[in-house]
Write a protein that binds this DNA or RNA. Structure first.
Lengths: 191, 191
DNA sequence: CGCATAAGTCAGTCATACTGCCATAACACG
DNA sequence: CGTGTTATGGCAGTATGACTGACTTATGCG
């Protein structure tokens, strides 16, 4: 892993000579100003960088990378996932997936089973070893998520999810909507 | 770029045999249940994947990648940024940065100028060409952000930022707090 | 003057993506 | 039953973005 300095670099300059371009669209919708959208980019960058740092360390010890984490995560989330479905979720090519999935299967983290209706399919599940690793990776991210969620509070979490949902394509929305439906919770993101 | 199918894969299984582990921590804090935190991971994955898709296409045409986008973004955000500061933000090594920054400077997207107080420093700024590209990249992400923000509404955006802030390390928080302070807005995330 | 700092550079490695092409097994339909 | 399609797996080659370690140059500072 990489130990980038925790150094607090000097406060931002804010001389951006671009500030006035699409600056104030709706007056009432201040959160649509350029500066707010730029801030969203900044924050997403920092959040993803810092959220992935801890899992990356664990993965590096085992000779794995983020791609392996993504595989483990999605197989954990959807046991019995087909290879083709995993490809559609990850948005990578079959060959790229093979190089990640191969070692995970070879080292006994993920198991394959032929589909019952369609025996061409290889349904993916986590072995006990795979579950152990995936839970370990989850739990270090969990710590950070719990702190952030608890500090922010329920309504903020709700807003967080509403915005994230809006950033996704239909595929992702269908997935999360399906989850919420199954969980029979109060619908929070009105389609 | 990659054209993953918009295919809506079948609804999730939800047989996860792990559901009961840390399932219900606080009763009143339902958003801290395992399923909620897993959902956060899912949604962040989809949101980042889909938010980056459009810029990736533009970058690919020019022979660049996401790393170049990150450079352009941060130089746009903080004109006159020092190389060392950029390294601290990106969290990569000098050598990795060189390979990204080199072509951007060589092809005239980013310019360097010696620091006035300290002439060892190379202060980074966007050239006009660089500004044009960066704004093009920004604007395609902007579309998606605007839709998400507008659909979600102001309070949701506020919650979105609160949670993201909680996911960051101190470095990022100092940065965004500095921005908010400079913008003299009502403080929303109590430190 | 001597050490520290900011930045650049060289050489080698690794992980993760890509493309194109081919193989195998199983399903599906006329 | 045969042909075409689908699901998966594999090989060869390439590019990007990350890494480590060691070295150089220019500058700042005590």
């Amino acid at each position: 892993m990489q130990d980038y300095p925790t150094q607090t670099f000097p406060a931002p300059k804010r001389e951006t000579p671009l500030g006035g371009a699409h600056a104030a669209p709706g007056a009432g919708l201040l959160f649509l100003r350029e500066e707010e959208l730029r801030l969203a980019q900044d924050m997403l960058f920092f959040a993803m960088r810092d959220l992935n740092a801890a899992p990356d360390e664990i993965l590096a010890e085992l000779g794995f990378g983020r791609a392996h984490h993504r595989c483990l995560h999605w197989v954990a989330r959807r046991p019995g996932l087909k290879v083709g479905e995993l490809l559609a979720i990850l948005g990578i090519t079959k060959q790229s997936l093979t190089r990640v999935l191969g070692p995970l299967i070879g080292e006994g983290y993920i198991a394959q089973a032929p589909g019952q209706q369609d025996r061409r399919q290889r349904l993916l599940t986590l072995t006990e070893k795979g579950q152990a690793l995936e839970r370990r990776l989850y739990s270090v991210q969990r710590e950070r998520l719990v702190v952030a969620y608890r500090e922010a509070g329920g309504p903020a979490v709700d807003g967080f999810k509403r915005v994230l949902r809006g950033l996704m394509n239909k595929q992702g929305r269908d997935y999360v909507d399906g989850l919420e439906h199954r969980a029979q919770k109060a619908p929070r993101a009105g389609a």
